[in-house]
Design a protein around this nucleic acid. Structure first.
Length: 457
DNA sequence: TCCGTTACGGTTGAC
DNA sequence: TAGTCAACCGTAACG
């Protein structure tokens, strides 16, 4: 069932919940499931009955940044409740899930919400309750918690981009050497030798097909140096620094608890154990997200071309996720943008009221949230019956804004204690060994990826 | 009712 | 510069 709400020039589709649409579950095999999905193309995706209660304008939060208009959905996503308009088109759009929560399809939830999910979970609140309270799908809650349990990070992974090339000049050189030494060598044998010789490790060894392609394209004629070799001699380099890319730069592989989550004062807790899914230069890197680069640059920790590189990255990301953490004077240790974000994310009379002040705010500056995320908290969490209704939050007594750091140490159940000592520089943790997943940690600073204001006091 | 899992449609960024 | 690809996202639905 689907109906369209029209409001002036605005109109969007709102569909009823799945129960009303698909009826009894097909139950049974995956085929049935798939068929059902096929026949019932997720009618509820574009919204829910709850969405009707949402404000029509999910414009970015207050102030002069508020959008004066709310136009219809963007052309690309006619069904979604989206914002439009000159500015809205570039900064605001979003959809409403069945719980009434606002989200941007394809984009991560704001770190503030992610953080709340973890925090609430650590307070013993069940995921289903968290889901309702934050109006985030339970699948998402589950995923975020699972990720957090696994990596200690609440941050989303790096979106987009490509994996680092494994066919580095050094690898190519070795392949050529192997081929020259044994023209009859098979690609898989080369692969084995690359591993055996330590040129590559199991995570970055080229595939057989890649080796074959190299042999075909780059080492086609062994009698003469390939164009690559002839043109430039790659500097000697160690085995492809896969670890440099994927490895958790943990101080000790046997000390998974080396890093403590959070710190009382350190809220921008720098130490920490936030990991990032990929650590090759990514716009989604924790550093970029959090503006750590800026900090590091300011402290001279990041210098030279690398800094420049990251600088560019930061610029790129400013439009979406990347916090344009300017090197502007901080306010009480908190960058102004962050403060603004705090304001924007402050939960109003929604079900989050109890935790509204629990978290500072989304780490994303409003300008990076494409509207939805930068909308006032009350907008992000669609208004609706408070959850739990007329019930004081269990968090309220213990958690309040500004005390996040003190209250939430993010001590992972399976992890060790939390340090109370604020750590000012990003620290790495020994959360997990290098894995193909390429989860790299970052300082808790990055912890939740939030510029959580030091609780001071 | 809860929750892990997964298909899906979407975004992103490197190539 | 546009297209492709593969990563990621959150939601909705299944079991």
């Amino acid at each position: 069932m689907k109906f369209t709400l029209g409001l002036g020039s605005r109109a969007w589709s709102v569909s009823w919940g799945r129960a009303a649409v698909i009826g009894p579950r097909a139950g049974g095999s995956a085929l049935g499931r798939g068929a059902q999905r096929f026949c019932s193309p997720r009618p509820a995706r574009r919204g829910s009955r709850l969405s009707r209660a949402l404000p029509l304008c999910l414009s970015r939060g207050g102030g002069d940044r508020a959008l004066p208009d709310c136009a219809g959905p963007s052309p690309g996503r006619p069904g979604a409740r989206q914002l439009a308009g000159p500015r809205a088109m570039e900064q605001t759009y979003g959809e409403v899930n069945q719980l009434g929560g606002v989200f941007v399809n394809g984009r991560p939830l704001p770190n503030a919400i992610r953080l709340r999910i973890v925090e609430l979970a650590q307070l013993g609140i069940r995921p289903c309750d968290i889901s309702r309270q934050l109006r985030v799908s339970h699948g998402c809650v589950s995923k975020i918690l699972a990720r957090y349990n696994e990596t200690g990070s609440i941050l989303p992974g790096a979106i987009g981009g490509s994996k680092p090339r494994v066919t580095t000049p050094n690898v190519v050189k070795h392949i050529r050497d192997y081929k020259q030494g044994d023209p009859g060598i098979f690609a898989w044998e080369i692969r084995d030798r690359l591993l055996a010789d330590g040129v590559c490790d199991k995570y970055n060894v080229p595939s057989v097909s890649s080796i074959s392609r190299i042999l075909r394209n780059k080492i086609g004629s062994l009698a003469q140096p390939g164009p690559y070799e002839a043109s430039k001699q790659p500097p000697p380099q160690p085995a492809l620094p896969y670890n440099h890319i994927y490895q958790y730069p943990y101080p000790s592989p046997v000390s998974p608890t080396g890093a403590k989550m959070g710190s009382h004062h350190g809220v921008p807790a720098t130490a920490g154990h936030v990991s990032i899914p990929r650590s090759w230069p990514s716009a989604h890197s924790v550093s970029n997200i959090l503006g750590i680069r800026t900090f590091m640059e300011q402290t001279g920790a990041l210098a030279g071309s690398e800094g420049a590189t990251y600088s560019a990255k930061m610029e790129d990301w400013a439009s979406v996720n990347r916090t344009a953490f300017p090197a502007t004077p901080a306010v009480n240790g908190l960058d102004k943008p962050a403060l603004e974000a705090d304001i924007k994310y402050t939960q109003s009379a929604s079900g989050l009221s109890a935790v509204g002040g629990f978290l500072p705010a989304c780490a994303y500056p409003a300008s990076n949230q494409h509207g939805v995320y930068s909308a006032p908290a009350g907008g992000y969490l669609a208004p609706g019956p408070p959850w739990p209704p007329a019930q004081a939050s269990p968090l309220a007594p213990t958690v309040h804004g500004g005390e996040l750091a003190a209250t939430m140490t993010f001590k992972h159940p399976s992890r060790e204690a939390v340090t109370d000592t604020p750590v000012l520089l990003p620290a790495v943790t020994d959360r997990k060994p290098p894995s193909p997943g390429g989860k790299a940690p970052d300082g808790l600073s990055t912890l939740h990826g939030l510029p959580i204001p030091a609780s001071t006091s």
